[in-house]
C-alpha cells in the first residue's frame, strides 16, 4: 500500500493511445506489477501500460501521471472515485463517462473532455477543446452530473445536450455553447461564441463577457439572479476560483428560449446597467 501511484511517461508518444485503464478505481486495488500489465490500446492492438509508463507505487486511489500526454486519450474514463492528477496536457476524452472523484489536468485538454460525465470534478488548468462536457455526436443526452472547470478557453459546443451538471469556463467559449441543452448550467466568464443555446430546453447559459443572443430567444428583464450569487459563492469558497468581486453584484439581462423549443431555457448575459 502506498500513498500514491505515479506514472511517468518513458518516451514521446507519437501514435494515439487510449488509456481508459488509467483510473484511480483500477489502481486502488492493484500493485505495481499488476498496474504495469494493464492494457493501453494502440489502434486494434494492446500495449502493456508498463511499456509506456514507468510505474511507481500502488495500490492507491491517488494517481499522478506526468509527461507529454497530448497523444494519450481517455485518461480517467469512467472513474468513480479517487484522485487523478495529470501534470501536463492530455489528449481527447479525458474524464469521459466519469462518475465520481477528482480529475485535475495542469495543461490543456483536447476534444471531448468530460464527455457524458455523470459526477465528480474535472478541473482543467489550461484550455479545453471542442465539446467539453457534451455528449457523443448524435447522442440524445450528454453530461448528466458533476462539474467541469476549464480555467482557460474552451472550444465549440461546450455542454451540448447536457441534462444536468455544470460546465464552467473562465476564459472564452467557442460557438454553439449549450446546443441542445436539456437542463444544467454552462457558465462562461469570458465571451461566448456565436449561436449559443440553440434547441435549449431548460438549461441555463450564463455569460459574463460578451454574447450575441440568438433571435429565437426573447428578452425578459434585467435583474440580479439569486442563484448566480449562490453559484459564485460556491465557486470561490469550494473551488478556489478567484473571481471579479463585482460579479456577485452584477445584473444580468435574461432571455428566455429557445422559443423553438419550450422557451424554458435561459441565457443570462451580464449587463453594464447597475
Amino acid at each position: 500500500m502506498s500513498d500514491a501511484v505515479t506514472l511517468t511517461l518513458r518516451t514521446t508518444v507519437s501514435r494515439r493511445l487510449e488509456a481508459e485503464s488509467i483510473t484511480p478505481d483500477a489502481f486502488g486495488t492493484l500493485g505495481e506489477t499488476a498496474i504495469a500489465r494493464l492494457p493501453l490500446w494502440d489502434g486494434p492492438h494492446t500495449v502493456p501500460l508498463g511499456d509506456v509508463f514507468d510505474v511507481r507505487g500502488g495500490p492507491s486511489s491517488r494517481v499522478r501521471v506526468a509527461g507529454d500526454l497530448a497523444m494519450v486519450d481517455a485518461l480517467g474514463a469512467g472513474m468513480t472515485t479517487g484522485e487523478l492528477h495529470v501534470e501536463g496536457s492530455v489528449g481527447r476524452y479525458v474524464g469521459t463517462r466519469m462518475a465520481g472523484g477528482q480529475l485535475r489536468v495542469t495543461g490543456d485538454a483536447a476534444y471531448g473532455a468530460g464527455l457524458e460525465m455523470s459526477g465528480g470534478l474535472l478541473d482543467i488548468a489550461g484550455n479545453a477543446g471542442d465539446r467539453l462536457g457534451a455528449g457523443r455526436l448524435a447522442a440524445a443526452r450528454g453530461m448528466t452530473g458533476g462539474e467541469i472547470i476549464a480555467r482557460g478557453n474552451a472550444g465549440a459546443e461546450i455542454g451540448a445536450t447536457m441534462r444536468r451538471g455544470t460546465v464552467i469556463v473562465l476564459g472564452n467559449a467557442g460557438p454553439r455553447a449549450g446546443t441542445g441543452m436539456i437542463a444544467g448550467n454552462v457558465i462562461v466568464f469570458g465571451s461566448a461564441g456565436n449561436d449559443p443555446g440553440r434547441f435549449n430546453k431548460r438549461g441555463t447559459i450564463i455569460v459574463f463577457g460578451g454574447v450575441s443572443v440568438p433571435p429565437n430567444y426573447q428578452y425578459d428583464c434585467t435583474y440580479r439572479p439569486p442563484h448566480v450569487a449562490v453559484t459564485l459563492v460556491y465557486l470561490t469558497s469550494r473551488r478556489n476560483l478567484s473571481l471579479d468581486g463585482a460579479a456577485a453584484a452584477a445584473r444580468f439581462r435574461r432571455y428566455s428560449g429557445d422559443m423553438a423549443e419550450s422557451g424554458r431555457g435561459e441565457i443570462l448575459a451580464r449587463s453594464d446597467e447597475q
Partner: peptide
Amino acid sequence: QGSKVIGGERYWRIPVMEGEFL
C-alpha cells in the same frame, strides 16, 4: 418555477413580481 443544483444542493427559483425568490 425552475430549479438549479449548485454544489449538490437543489434550489428552487420562484418567479415573483420583483424578480425571483430563491
